[in-house]
Design a protein around this nucleic acid. Structure first.
Lengths: 198, 198
DNA sequence: GGGTAATCTAGAACACGTTCCAGCGTGGCG
DNA sequence: CGCCACGCTGGAACGTGTTCTAGATTACCC
């Protein structure tokens, strides 16, 4: 385990960091315009000004690239939410509101959201570490919104998991046009009831 | 709306019905052996004894094909469950047990499950009708397990939705190796608490 | 049974994700 | 300064999902 498949990210030079950002930015831009299928590896490479091989050195697949994009976006949401937490008495309501706010953030760029979420759910085991990272950020977002003063109980953690499942699946359902935003809100609120009951 | 994109399925001849079954059977067989990526359209066509163009006439994409396979499998589970419903007093526990039984059914062919679920979550809007059908069967499975004597209340329906989200997302999480079966059970049981609380 | 429209077949062709390779540039070390 | 290791480049090449076409077969109606 000391030599894991992800060998503790050798530190990137400045130029490399810049390349990585350029690639991520390009991917997000293409995704915003045309969704998952519009993110074409050749085009990402060209617009980001790197060779195709280099793109694949940084992100070993299209799915890796888009999951990394999701990480990026989620982290931005998380920072914003930490700066401006939602108000309210009830923890369940705060969680639901926080997730709905994030949801509306994704809604602003629906094609981008589609691309990222498709990648996330299509990811196979080779991407599980990155997907897990996304899951961890989401869970933290929820825990932050709960505003706990002491470590969460076992029941609370269980509820958080179900809320996360609901969030994720509701997102997919909305993106495929099978549920309205109102319905997503209801689903999230329903799941959040688990918090006030445990 | 009278001439919808799916024009009320023109009745298939016997030969056509047989072809369809051969295709579905072949797809399931290949998926069982090697999962999503092992279901290759050329190979499905060849093994099922139809031309590639014909395969695409029956199922307009690989995702359509695998979602149809999922419909097939789910219906089989549903019939089995109706013949042998789970025992128990508590509706929530019955639902959780029923879903876990279905889960174990999928576990018996993990590669097949992977293929079907990947297709399901990767599906875009062009497959939403078929995905919706899968969702309807799953919801019915849950409602059956609840063993209602009168129509479900609004709260119960909301709970069913969250349970369905949880089921679906937990399945994805398990398939990508990020959650154990025990964890899936806990998540389902947590979600099912919503039933006994509404 | 004949005619016709729909369906099926074989196979080429195309698109895009992914892999691979040969050569160039660059940064660090003797 | 020369050299080496490594990353980057441009581009070819491959695999698989998907589309298309020309001709054979089938189903159905008179």
């Amino acid at each position: 385990m000391t030599t894991s498949p992800r060998p503790a990210a050798p530190p990137l030079t400045e130029r490399q960091e810049a390349r990585r950002r350029r690639i991520l930015h390009t991917a997000a831009q293409l995704a915003s315009r045309g969704g998952f299928e519009a993110v074409q590896m050749r085009e990402v490479a060209e617009l980001a000004g790197v060779a195709l091989g280099t793109l694949y050195r940084y992100f070993p697949s299209k799915v890796h690239l888009l999951v990394a994009t999701m990480q990026d976006q989620l982290q931005i949401f998380q920072e914003q939410t930490r700066k401006h937490p939602v108000e309210g008495e009830d923890p369940g309501a705060r969680v639901a509101d926080t997730l709905m706010r994030t949801f509306r953030g994704l809604q602003r760029e629906p094609k981008l959201a589609e691309a990222m979420v498709r990648a996330l759910t299509f990811a196979d085991r080779s991407v599980s570490a990155e997907v897990d990272q996304v899951s961890r950020i989401t869970g933290q977002l929820i825990l932050d919104a709960m505003g706990l003063t002491e470590p969460p109980t076992r029941e609370q953690l269980a509820a958080v998991r179900v809320i996360e499942h609901t969030w994720h699946s509701a997102l997919v359902t909305w993106l495929s046009g099978r549920a309205s935003i109102a319905q997503v809100r209801i689903d999230l609120e329903t799941a959040c009831k688990l918090l006030t009951m445990s």
